[in-house]
Write a protein that binds this DNA or RNA. Structure first.
Lengths: 190, 190
DNA sequence: GCAGGTGATGTCAGTGACTGACATGACGCT
DNA sequence: AGCGTCATGTCAGTCACTGACATCACCTGC
């Protein structure tokens, strides 16, 4: 078999990720030590840190996947910056089907309860904006417009996501995102 | 004398803040321990943590002051959300006179060299957006519009600040900010 | 002045995140 | 069977951060 697996069972990263989320949900983030997570996954603390740069990162591995999908949704043809961002947002909407909503809500509850985790989430959003900015400038958009368009796009995405995971919300991610974008445009025109 | 002073010399917070910035500039953030900072200020590590919640916070005490000024610049009369945000931005511009630019650049260089510090800066910006959102909703703006207007305002501010501290930049903060706001509006209208 | 209160600081012991160095054991290849 | 590779285990160490308690300057009431 492939050498990517763990010493005995394989899938060490996934086991650590699942164990961490479970413990965070029951004991809270601060009430859980890395040693506990590792033990729950049948591994040692040192191995945890070989898979994740730090304790927080175990909740954000998917986020890096998002960034790739976001960028791949960026159309190759150069057009108006904001039109390209809208294309990216449409692509991003496919990342959040209805089935994912419960899991996103659980994750959200853990992050909402801890400032350090919110900090990390902001960093991921920021790095997404930076990547988008780079991609836009690579397509000929001037630096200032690229940065603003990227920031606006991330703002729309983040706001939409917050609404999507809110209790009682029933609209699809795409519907929410379209409404949020329209509202932002209306606000700025006035 | 007032009991706010340190055991012997007084001004413990300021001494710690200055010692920290100096050491960070010469040795880098990671290369400086809290014990070193405290010793340079003639204090102990424990006292450092009585003045600052954590090592990073020593670079962000002013940021909390910003938040107060931002909010105080918010006009009392209710109007269009974005018009109120523009009022806040005009008030914020007074916080960055020309004399402050060199100091801001030094600080910026420390933060730019360390991801953990960028994370904290993002958190401060986010908490500013949250505070603005609350202030807008308290003035009758609906939640979604308030959040978007606040986010847009913070984006304009942050982008403007980045340009203002860039090497070679000569325009005033206010000039830059007006240009950035106009460009964001133009981008979204298209 | 003198005793007591207050607030900032010092001291000390401890926890937990994170790291470097080295050992070990499973697996694939030859 | 022998060998190299790679994930993991082990161990020692640093450093951020915290709780508990002692100390010392200063202020207040008497």
């Amino acid at each position: 078999m492939m050498g990517i697996m763990g010493r005995w069972q394989g899938g060490a990263s996934e086991r650590l990720r699942d164990a961490a989320l479970g413990l965070f949900l029951t004991q809270g983030y601060d009430g859980t030590t890395v040693a506990e997570i590792a033990a729950a996954a049948g591994l040692t603390e040192r191995t945890f840190f070989r898979h994740f740069a730090d304790k927080r990162e175990v909740l954000f591995v998917d986020q890096d996947e998002f960034e790739r999908v976001f960028l791949s949704a960026l159309p190759d043809d150069t057009g108006e910056p904001m039109a390209m961002i809208v294309g990216v947002l449409d692509g991003a909407a496919t990342l959040f089907p209805e089935e994912r909503r419960p899991w996103s809500r659980a994750r959200r509850s853990v992050i909402a309860a801890n400032v350090a985790l919110q900090e990390r989430e902001l960093l991921k959003m920021s790095s997404l904006a930076v990547a988008l900015t780079r991609a836009l400038t690579a397509r000929g958009v001037d630096a200032a417009s690229a940065a603003l368009a990227a920031e606006a796009g991330v703002t729309v995405f983040r706001t939409s996501f917050a609404l999507w995971v809110a209790e009682g919300e029933r609209r699809t991610f795409k519907e929410i995102q379209n409404a949020v974008l329209a509202r932002l445009q209306a606000l700025l025109v006035q």
